[in-house]
Nucleic acid binder design. Structure first.
Length: 157
DNA sequence: GCCAACGTTGGC
DNA sequence: GCCAACGTTGGC
């Protein structure tokens, strides 16, 4: 069995939680609410471990791209927004005694320059990154160690 | 605002 | 279990 991925990319809409918001939070740590996709949830539940590296990505904004480095700071627990009827993430079919949606804590490590999509696409060694795949809609996805090394060690160094 | 791509739902 | 319709994501 291949080793579990140790690096991830997590998308956040900056209007909701930007890298600045995360850095300003107590302990620079935020609860990653709002994941409503089974594949993304399963990555969090089954594969992500405390200490794993995270590329903090801004989506649905003027300049989408990687904007910071973070780390996984907890295991998963129920996402309370699924039970909040006032939340856009409310899920009327999820049960308190069997929560469908999970979250984990993410701790921001540092803000970086914006490493935007056009720049990422221009690097041949990054061509098969999940985030660059056409039609990709995952909000939590694995990052290969070599891609992490190139991005964190060189492009954002 | 547009629209391609994708995941989910639900009828059959 | 199939698959068309629908809703959502997210870049542009």
């Amino acid at each position: 069995m291949p080793p579990a991925p140790r690096y991830w990319l997590m998308k956040s809409e900056p209007d909701e939680c930007s890298i600045d918001d995360a850095l300003a939070a107590p302990d620079a740590t935020v609860a990653w609410t709002g994941v409503r996709n089974y594949q993304a949830r399963n990555f969090m539940r089954d594969a992500m471990r405390v200490g794993d590296g995270v590329l903090f990505y801004h989506s649905s904004c003027a300049e989408p791209g990687i904007v910071g480095i973070a780390r996984v700071a907890s295991g998963t627990r129920a996402d309370p927004t699924q039970f909040d009827a006032a939340s856009p993430y409310f899920d009327a079919t999820s049960r308190l005694d069997d929560p469908r949606w999970l979250l984990l804590d993410v701790q921001a490590v540092r803000k970086t320059r914006v490493l935007g999509l056009p720049e990422l696409r221009a690097v041949p060694a990054l061509a098969d990154m999940v985030v660059l795949r056409k039609g990709n809609r995952l909000s939590v996805m694995p990052v290969e160690a070599a891609h992490w090394a190139l991005i964190v060690g060189e492009l954002l160094a």
